[in-house]
């Protein structure tokens, strides 16, 4: 028989398992890999988590709502390319400037979020109104949006983003790059929204049981549509951040990022069946993946190992999730 305190302790450990894994992995890497244990490397890990992290927020929300969005990677690429075309001064960039110059930051953000939101709305409309399968709808978007990126860029790239935007990619605050702070703020805001507002609770309820939620008088269709719009808009923001980081956009920008975002979401404890998941866990999942990427970079291992380790980690995360659920059932 376990005491209430022990039960609370076990539940806390289970709920935050991915954070413990992160700490464990960082400790092992720090002890075994030369040059790993330094502030610059930790800052790099946080910075590199920015794009997949932000993208994973929207993806996690859609998955928690019981659906799927495969288009986020291409949406991010499209936003990045549009930002690049408008505000880069070389390559295919048109080099538009605004007065005062800092206005480019909110304008670029609004455009990127709007572009992503529109594609998200299209996905959501097809899923909700036409009852099409989200997997197929967003797979189609994944393909046609990437095609659009190639079409509007003609396969060419844009470079030299406007200096106020580059400022965000270069400057740091408390050792952490400004760009990474944006991701952290996004996680804080959406953690609050998902955990403390009726919207977040209702989305989680829909993912758990959409029919029961509908019978409880909650507008399921509207909320599901909104989750798709949010996923698209957040992916648009991720695209802007990606363009800022690389000071422009190429037609293959962000390739393969979807799978990292999915891995982070699953490792972070979000159930692909919907109705279960917390965003801090997703952030820990993203940090864990970035740590592994960085460790592989520093060890000089062939990059194939990244994918092998990534696959193994996802599998381990799903296994751990199953074990976690069994333990919770035993405790109940």
């Amino acid at each position: 028989m376990i005491s209430p305190f022990q039960r609370a302790l076990i539940e806390f450990a289970l709920d935050n398992l991915v954070w413990f894994m992160l700490v464990f992995v960082l400790a092992i890497f720090s002890l075994t890999i030369p040059n790993f244990f330094q502030i610059g490397i930790f800052a790099n890990i946080v910075e590199q988590s920015t794009f997949v992290g932000v993208m994973a927020i929207g993806l996690a929300i859609v998955i928690i709502a019981g659906h799927m969005d495969l288009s986020v990677e291409s949406v991010a690429a499209l936003s990045a390319m549009i930002t690049g075309i408008l505000f880069c001064s070389h390559g295919i960039g048109q080099g538009y400037t605004l007065t005062p110059a800092w206005l480019v930051i909110p304008v670029a953000a609004l455009i990127a979020i709007f572009v992503g939101g529109v594609i998200g709305a299209m996905n959501g409309w097809l899923v909700v109104k036409l009852q099409m399968n989200a997997f197929i709808v967003t797979l189609a978007s994944y393909i046609w949006v990437r095609g659009l990126v190639v079409a509007i860029s003609g396969g060419r790239s844009a470079q030299d983003l406007a200096p106020p935007l580059r400022f965000i990619g270069i400057e740091t605050m408390g050792f952490i790059p400004l760009i990474a702070w944006i991701a952290i703020i996004c996680f804080v805001v959406f953690t609050f929204i998902m955990g403390r507002t009726p919207f977040g609770r209702h989305v989680t309820m829909i993912g758990g049981n959409a029919v029961a939620t509908f019978r409880a008088g909650i507008k399921v269709d509207q909320l599901v549509l909104l989750t798709f719009v949010l996923a698209g808009a957040i992916a648009g923001l991720a695209g802007l951040l990606l363009a800022i980081r690389t000071s422009g956009a190429t037609a293959n920008l962000g390739t393969g990022m979807l799978f990292n975002a999915f891995a982070a979401v699953v490792i972070g404890g979000v159930s692909l069946k919907g109705g279960v998941g917390r965003l801090p866990g997703v952030y820990a999942g993203v940090l864990l993946l970035s740590s592994i990427h960085t460790a592989i970079n520093l060890m000089g291992l062939p990059a194939h190992y990244t994918q092998v380790i990534l696959g193994a980690l996802v599998l381990a995360a799903v296994l751990l999730d199953t074990v976690k659920l069994s333990i919770k059932q035993m405790l109940a």
């Binding site: 030369p34 040059n35 790993f36 330094q38 610059g40 490397i41 790099n44 910075e47 590199q48 794009f51 990606l242 980081r245 690389t246 190429t250 293959n252 920008l253 962000g254 390739t255 393969g256 990427h293 960085t294 970079n297 520093l298 000089g300 062939p302 990059a303 990244t306 994918q307």
Partner: peptide, 25 residues
């Protein structure tokens, strides 16, 4: 020579490699 591949020729992967290596080396 330190050799590392940018998966899928993605520029952000090259950026990450340079970023990490400039700290470590």
């Amino acid at each position: 020579i330190i050799s590392l591949p940018a998966l899928q020729w993605a520029p952000e992967n090259a950026g990450t490699i340079v970023s990490d290596q400039m700290v470590a080396n």
